[in-house]
Design a protein around this nucleic acid. Structure first.
Lengths: 400, 400
DNA sequence: CTGTTAGCGCCTTCAG
DNA sequence: CTGAAGGCGCTAACAG
């Protein structure tokens, strides 16, 4: 919440005070404020919103005072019409009930707030078609930026790209989260590298009998994580058993319920599924953590309180959300790496893959507006917890 | 997504096609569409948005066709200015990272989508002052409705009420979630009744040695649940031990870590805290579920996968979110009870309190307006799970 | 049915 | 530094 350039007049508190008549008092308009303050309409405008403030302090004060007294509230839609752009940021997420997206949303909303924007949000329900329709609809509000955080699914993305391209060519800024390969600034998540590092860490800890619960290669996130983990394993000469299930808690649960007896270490492609796996294992009478270790990916808060606590790869979701808004607002800015502290933990080297991604198509058509394929890497970090060998799922080790 | 009254022109896919020049082609305006279609500006408007469609089908078709071809997109802010009200719904939640609010948000967004509104959202971070500021800020967009879902905290609510009152007196509609006592339509949650029923259920199951982990009476939700549970216990002649901690996972964890040894059944005021309690118990070397049963409130998805699965009180969060939007849009409508199935569980009587509160003033230029204090009860439902007596925290009972 | 013409609330040159 | 006037894109009477 930066204080400068504030457009607020009445300190954030209601001020319709007087309002004697009861019949839907038309909201106070800037014109009234001007009259009340004894200055011109234009002056009032300048005093309250000042693109380049050039108004005698005395008058400015009078205007502010009048505005406060009348409870004036700038009519944002009107401002948008006059200025040509609104003060909103649009966000499309795949599923708000998933803590992964919820955290990203928090980050976006937070950063937007700081930038003086309010966010309009839509939930695409993990359906590509709906997603396109939503950005289209959102576009009507002429947001200053559009951020799309969906689980990218295999298939033609032409519609989405076209929609976004159209938006950008009209002056809008877009940012994507974890869906590289599209000609827009993206906050990537190193799914491959993180998963690979995780695999190596587990191998180093002496685990074996690996299994991967994933959701098929059509879902990019799943594919990359599966791939990374597999490669990490292969470097140690190991080969995992693959189990495919839905990208959800329940999918994980089903997988856990019928997990092959020889799998003693299972990596679920995300924390939510991993938690489901643990649950499923228990339903099958097995003990997750001791008998079979389970690891996930994301380090969602929930995972830290699960039993056994998940070994996972930390992904700074909130920061990623913030970052998305920032790179959208200021592509090519000094945003790179900003706000993402945290060591590389166990992730270590090769955390950074090919950073540079070059815009393939269309980008030529659309000039400046900042680089189109900006990529800011967020380093993954392996977090080892309870599910490692010697620990039991039940009795905690603490104090005892 | 209802199809009628659609304002969309180009089937949801981008259409900036032609656009030869590359320098930020000004978005297509309605005027251009009109010219392109060979009709007047007004006719084009009517054809595409038609409040009361009265345009020869032939022309209408031409307009639609032209709109599609040019990739016309109605400029919502302009529409808002012209119409006097925008097509947005504002939502203020206390903490998006909490699954409780995330689910509510999903419901709101969903219902908004159905009503043709897009939601603008803000996170109040559980801070009353911020909450007021946010609704104030949001008000600037002239949303058609404002929904506030915060954890009500003891203290003067004058600022919030004033802000909301001002909004409403200007024709806006507001709906609150789980914070009765304020002069606005509210979707209540029977915290007291649900907790009391839960207590009785646990007593009936033979549990004893009760403890309540709550967050102090300043937080209404905590207070009501604690109160209800306590009363339920007293009916059986029992008295609980009280532990006060922060309203979060971590607060619960701390409570669990130092839980009095004699407490063998603990009720945490919400699922998230309950999960924390389980976690804390383990850290202290105790086994939640077997040695000490833990119950929560909300029936958040996460709770169903926790270990041990939580005995809890189901609250249809999503439905509640939907309902909030509906009663805001149509107070006094037939919304009562709609969409909320599920038995009354044990909540029982006193579920319905004083409903009527009469609307003072009238709407400005915005559509009708109904009752202002509508209250729709959502019946709580006790869900008994693993944490009951005989079960172990580890080995599942299933199959094996 | 259709076109013309005012605004909606605000910002912004453009003169004073 | 200030006021007057035009315009943003769209809707809504009001004539034809």
């Amino acid at each position: 919440m930066r204080g400068d350039k504030s457009t607020d007049a009445d300190g954030g508190t209601a001020g319709s005070g007087a309002a004697g008549s009861a019949g839907g008092p038309a909201p106070v308009t800037l014109r009234e404020v001007a009259r009340e303050a004894g200055v011109s309409y234009a002056t009032a405008s300048r005093a309250l919103n000042g693109s380049d403030r050039t108004v005698r302090e005395e008058n400015a004060a009078r205007v502010r005072e009048a505005a406060a007294r009348l409870g004036y509230l700038p009519y944002l839609p009107a401002q948008a019409v006059a200025r040509g752009f609104s003060s909103t940021a649009a966000l499309v997420v795949a599923d708000m009930d998933d803590p992964y997206f919820a955290s990203i949303a928090v980050g976006v909303v937070d950063a937007a707030e700081e930038a003086g924007l309010i966010v309009t949000m839509a939930v695409a329900d993990r359906t590509p078609e709906l997603e396109v329709q939503l950005v289209h609809k959102l576009r009507g509000h002429r947001p200053q930026v559009i951020i799309v955080a969906g689980s990218r699914i295999e298939g033609p993305q032409d519609a989405l790209v076209a929609e976004l391209e159209a938006y950008r060519s009209a002056g809008g800024r877009v940012a994507l989260i974890s869906q590289e390969g599209l000609p827009f600034p993206t906050v990537p998540i190193d799914n491959y590298g993180g998963a690979r590092a995780l695999a190596r860490t587990l191998v180093d800890l002496g685990r074996d009998g690996f299994g991967i619960v994933h959701s098929g290669d059509r879902i990019h996130t799943s594919r990359d994580r599966r791939q990374g983990f597999t490669d990490g394993l292969r470097e140690a000469g190991l080969e995992p058993v693959l189990i495919e299930e839905a990208f959800s808690r329940d999918g994980g649960r089903r997988a856990g319920r019928s997990l092959h007896p020889e799998v003693r270490t299972v990596f679920a492609v995300n924390d939510v599924m991993a938690i489901g796996v643990s649950s499923g294992l228990r339903e099958a009478g097995r003990v997750p953590g001791a008998e079979v270790a389970v690891a996930g990916f994301d380090d969602v808060e929930e995972a830290r309180y699960a039993t056994p606590a998940l070994t996972t790869v930390r992904v700074p979701l909130r920061e990623i959300g913030r970052l998305a808004l920032r790179i959208a607002l200021d592509p090519g800015g000094d945003t790179a790496g900003a706000g993402v502290r945290g060591s590389a933990g166990g992730g270590g080297r090769d955390s950074v893959r090919d950073g540079a991604w070059v815009s393939p198509k269309g980008a030529a058509r659309v000039p400046p507006e900042g680089a189109a394929g900006a990529v800011v890497r967020v380093p993954p970090e392996v977090v080892v917890r309870d599910s490692t060998p010697g620990r039991s799922a039940c009795g905690g080790s603490a104090s005892g």
